[in-house]
Amino acid sequence: MMVDQFVAQIRRLGHGVIDAVMRLGFAARFFMALILASGTGLRRFSLVVREIYFAGFMSLIIISVSGLFVGMVLGLQGYNTLQRFGSESALGVLVALSLLRELGPVVAALLFASRAGTAMTAEIGLMKSTEQLVAMDMMAVNPLARVIAPKFWAGVLSMPLLAAIFSAVGIFGGYLIGVRFIGVDAGTFWSQMQAQVSVRTDILYGVYKSFVFGVVVTAIALFEGFDAPATAEGVSRATTRTVVISSLAILVLDFVLTAFMLGGN
């Protein structure tokens, strides 16, 4: 009896692994097909523009408000910590580097996953469950090229811009708290920042990171929607999975990318 149960457990594990590998394979094929189908979408750029409106522009408010508050918290916390060492003058550096290197790309990507990613998953999932994608395919229009690829490129293009806006607003928030509210000297705040922040290794690396996050989050969101079972429950689960998987992917990838960038420096 014990042996039977043990074997059943092992079998379940094996089943889970096989399922996961198959899904991964399916996801990889989906991604390849998506890239191959991108030609049409990019040639008709108005399709991408429309999706940038939904993915990028509509995320502006949440991104800038969050950026402002994250920057303000950084200002408060940073000042509090730095003044113990008498280095308040480094507040600008601390705020800028935290935002540009980490918080900007990462938090913006997390917000993007939950704001735009879930919307993409739900939309694709619903289009699938109401047979809209099949109908399009029957009309000899490839849904991958017409619906999914434009969303993908919109996400990829929006993400770095959103992260840059997040960081810029965040630095402004840190400035508001540090300089206007606490009274750190404005000259020191900016000049220390400018002396320490490098365009190549700090700002551009942040942009690279957010570009990678844009690719990953959008691809996950679209795949989950495309792969969702055609039921209300299936779509809602897929939406949840989008948030969970893309958040994990962002954080793990952030570590990997950071390790590479610092290592290569």
């Binding site: 619903l126 395919d137 029957m138 000899a140």
Partner: peptide, 21 residues
């Protein structure tokens, strides 16, 4: 070829499958 053929076919789905957007 299939897409070429489908341009000459029309299909009405069970619930219409209109594009909701």
């Amino acid at each position: 070829q299939l897409y070429g053929m489908r341009r000459r076919m029309g299909m009405l789905f069970q619930f219409g499958a209109l594009f909701t957007d």
